[in-house]
Nucleic acid binder design. Structure first.
Length: 566
RNA sequence: CGGAGUGUAGCUCAGGUGGCAGAGCACGUGCCUUGGGAGCACGGGGUCGCAGGUUCAAGUCCUGCCACUCCGACCA
């Protein structure tokens, strides 16, 4: 491709609205443009990268035996009513109305549609297993789109759905996808972790996330360098047994005056005790309006996902001042003793002795509290958010913490959707059974951003070879010099003949501008044709290392052949 | 959805106390130049986010709305 005929509007300055590297460079280098919040146009370079990623994903999905389909973006509301998600999914679901007033969803995901397709067309165990996938634009009316392609309202996703005769077989399908995902992310050249994840409201037996390691990522991950355990903090087990305080003799319960002292920090300072011996009492309101008190050791944080899962709720929030008042609870001095809502305790409180809690009375705390002498929680549950330094649940070494970007998520769904939508098959024994499902997503457009987050420097993008828009960038530094031009054209033509994807900068602009654009765009290999052509030499540069190597023109065929090979 | 900020040329931005709409870059033409975003000259380009109000006069002051960004909540 000749640059003079191509289109990559580069910018000298960062766009005002971009904050993160992937957003800044994809815009500056002319890959994408913003249309509105969370909506982006893919310019020719951007679309090339997108197709590269798609094709890698497609290749591995096909190899795994999955079958590519294309489902409608619009989904009739009735389907979503069947699973209850028309109401549950909330404001994130784009809803549209046709001329007759019939409602549709712009698909944010396709469990309903694919399950409908399967239930209408699959009758027997002989038709199973099947795995269908598609690569398509998805719509989610995000409360806060941000970071360019990382969180859009419209984005490109590969979604796959497996259908099996039994859970055992479904696990097998799930494992195949897990291995397939590893191959995909390996080939993309990304530094990622596969982590145990929460299944969220989608339900199911278990799930794994594939997380690309980036600073300031939205996903918080703990992992063990020793044994390889890795989990999203929402799903990571907290091993309190390994973090418990030494036993003590019980001291008598005492109420102490603590004027205007309510935060754990302040109480610890005021009473001169370790925050680990202060127990926070948090009042949560579940989505059905139930109020519950949850105790946790002062040095730890509640994980609301674990809470939601335990209570089988869709949602929960910390009680507001008004809600506390309605319940007759004293804000800042809440404690389990004498509280008339159910009290649950995080495991971190188990076997804790002589600890401090709020006295449910303004400006008072109890000290030397002991379980079960002074109160008894309904149950001890793991509500803790895992964090760096916690013991690994597998091998007990201290966990490390990192952040990342979720680019893939696989779920073993079970029969949640097949039950709701009556997707049944007739098994060998002649009995009708629900199909066991799994679902598997990869954020294609987000991967493009993730790759840039992980591969850039101050001058621009450094694409992994597998997804670079072109492999070779030819810079003819002075296109008015006939010798330079002729050599450049010759190398360009030879590259094309060999099937090397090449961008040839034949524009009549200054050398500096060409170098700057080339660095921004980030094509892996660069052949520079300039003054040294007088001595019959050209230059090969690698974008990733910045290394420059002078090559005799007569060796150009060998060089191109080598570029073609790797 | 709560909090904060921004909105002026294609881009990045400047425009105290109200008084002719600006710069750099980009773009066009010509000259010159060609190894890290060259130089000179001339030129084109504006609904100052939108609507209303105050005023002789509004980019500037007031009210409302919209859009975009950031922090948080949220994120099958």
């Amino acid at each position: 491709m000749k640059a003079s005929q191509y289109f990559f509007p580069t910018l000298k300055e960062s766009p005002a609205e971009a904050e993160v590297p992937s957003h800044i460079y994809l815009v500056r280098a002319g890959y994408i443009r913003q249309l509105a919040a969370g909506l982006y146009e893919y310019l020719p370079l951007g679309f090339r990268v997108l197709k590269k990623i798609e094709n890698i994903v497609r290749k591995h999905m096909d190899q795994a035996g999955a079958l590519e389909v294309l489902l409608p973006i619009l989904a009739p509301s009735e389907l979503w009513q069947e699973t209850g998600r028309w109401d549950v999914y909330g404001k994130e679901l784009f809803r549209v109305e046709d001329r007759k007033g019939r409602l549709f969803a712009l698909g944010p995901t396709h469990e309903e549609t694919i399950t409908d397709m399967v239930r209408k067309n699959i009758r027997s165990y002989k038709d199973l297993p099947k795995n269908f996938y598609q690569i398509q634009t998805k719509f989610r009316d995000e409360a806060r789109p941000r970071y360019g392609l990382i969180r859009g309202r419209e984005f490109i996703m590969k979604d796959a759905y497996s259908f099996d005769v039994s859970e055992e077989m479904a696990v097998r399908s799930y494992e195949i996808m897990k291995q397939t995902y590893k191959k995909i992310f390996d080939e993309l050249g990304l530094d990622y972790l596969m982590v145990e994840a929460d299944t969220g409201a989608i339900g199911g037996k278990y799930s794994h996330e594939f997380v690309v390691k980036v600073p300031n990522g939205e996903a918080h991950i703990v992992y063990c360098e020793k044994c390889g355990y890795a989990a999203n903090v929402e799903a990571a087990k907290y091993e309190f047994e390994l973090d418990r305080l030494p036993p003590e003799d019980e001291k008598p319960l005492e109420k102490v005056h603590t004027p205007s002292v309510s935060s754990v920090e302040d109480v610890a300072k005021f009473l001169g005790v370790d925050p680990k011996k202060i127990v926070k009492t948090l009042v949560y309101i579940l989505d059905d309006g139930t109020a519950v008190a949850v105790l946790i050791r002062g040095d730890r944080e509640i994980n609301e996902t674990k809470l939601i899962n335990y209570f089988n709720a869709l949602d929960c929030h910390l009680a507001s001042s008004e809600e506390l008042e309605e319940l007759g609870i004293v804000e800042g001095f809440v404690g389990p003793i004498g509280l008339d809502i159910p009290v649950y305790a995080d495991v971190s409180v188990k076997d804790l002795h002589n600890f401090v809690v709020g006295a449910n009375e303004k400006d008072y705390h109890f000290i030397n509290v002991n379980i079960p002498r002074d109160f008894k929680p309904v149950e001890f549950v793991d509500f803790s958010t895992a964090r760096e330094g916690d013991p690994c649940p597998v091998c007990r070494s201290p966990l490390k913490e990192t952040t990342g970007l979720e680019v893939g998520h696989i779920f073993l769904l079970g029969t949640k959707y097949s039950d709701a939508m009556k997707a049944y098959f007739v098994d060998k024994d002649g009995k009708e059974k629900p199909i066991v499902m799994g679902c598997y997503g990869i954020g294609i457009s987000r991967l493009m951003a993730a790759a840039v987050e992980q591969n850039h420097d101050k001058n621009g993008i450094i694409w992994p070879e597998s997804i670079a828009p072109f492999k070779l960038h030819i810079l003819a530094l002075n296109i008015k010099d006939n010798q330079i031009k002729n050599v450049a054209e010759e190398i360009y033509n030879k590259s094309k003949e060999k099937g090397i994807e090449v961008l040839y900068d034949d524009r009549d602009i200054s050398p500096g501008a060409k170098f700057k654009d080339a660095d921004l765009i980030g094509i892996p290999y660069r052949i520079v044709i300039g003054k040294k052509i007088k001595e019959g030499r050209i230059e090969l540069q690698e974008r990733s290392t910045g290394e420059k190597e002078e090559i005799d023109l007569e060796n150009i065929d060998g060089l191109l052949e080598k570029l073609k090979q790797d």
